[in-house]
Simulated assay, not measured.
Amino acid sequence: MPSLKTGGIPLSQAKKAAILIHGRGASAESILALKDYLSLGEYAVLAPEARGGTWYPYSFMAPDKANQVALKESLTIIKAAWDQISQAGIAPENVVLIGFSQGACLSLEFAAQNAQKPKAVIAFTGGLIGEKVQEEKYSGDFHGAQVFIGSSERDVHVPLSRIKESETLLSRMGASVKLLIFKDSNHTIRKEEIDWVNENIL
């Protein structure tokens, strides 16, 4: 059974919830530390953990078959966390998906494959998964839900071109997408991103 760490308000008492999704080589515990910087005081926080510390083995832009089995399992793990929140009586519009790097890609992919109106999807350096962005993979309507993607314009793992392709498709699906792109080449979460998210989403 995949590991799931929790924090914040107990799920049974919360009116809002956040799913935090860690990056490659990290853990549920490490991404849970983000709650100390984000304004999640009113949220139940769930952080699922990937088997072996990785949600899928290769680059998020590798040929689809390379990541297919692991990605399917990982999306199932995120769905289980989402369902747990739903079963606690928290509506989708009060749920936030938050991920970094591999976790950001997974949060965007899960949201796009199950498009509805969450409170927001917050992707710290990420894009939709696949060798190419395939519109036919995605269905549903975001109904104006906020999607935030912050990144470097020269990130070694996530090309700006894929971020912009993701923005185009998500916008077409009814999301209100905000990009915050920085001139540096750091693969990190910046204070400016945290501040924007706290002020405009959470």
Rank of each mutant, 00 (worst) to 15 (best):
H143I: 01
E193S: 13
G144E: 00
A112V: 04
V177Y: 02
P159W: 00
F124R: 08
S171F: 02
D141W: 05
L128W: 14
E135L: 05
I181M: 14
A123Q: 12
R162C: 03
K132H: 13
S152E: 08
F142V: 08
V147L: 08
I194P: 07
D155F: 09
Q102Y: 06
L128C: 13
I181K: 13
V121G: 09
K164Y: 03
R190S: 03
S151M: 03
E131W: 05
K191T: 04
S176K: 14
L108M: 04
F148P: 10
G150F: 02
K117P: 12
E153M: 13
H157I: 05
I149G: 14
A111I: 01
E167I: 02
I90F: 00
S171N: 11
A91I: 00
G126N: 14
I149W: 12
F142L: 07
I181T: 13
L169K: 14
D141E: 07
A120V: 07
W196T: 11
D195C: 02
S166Q: 10
Q146S: 10
Q102E: 10
Q134E: 12
S101G: 09
V95H: 02
F124T: 05
S185I: 03
A88G: 11
P159T: 00
K191W: 05
N186Y: 08
A111Q: 06
E93V: 01
L128T: 12
Q113E: 06
A123C: 10
V96M: 13
N94H: 04
R190C: 03
L170P: 15
G174D: 01
G150M: 00
A112L: 02
C105W: 11
F100K: 07
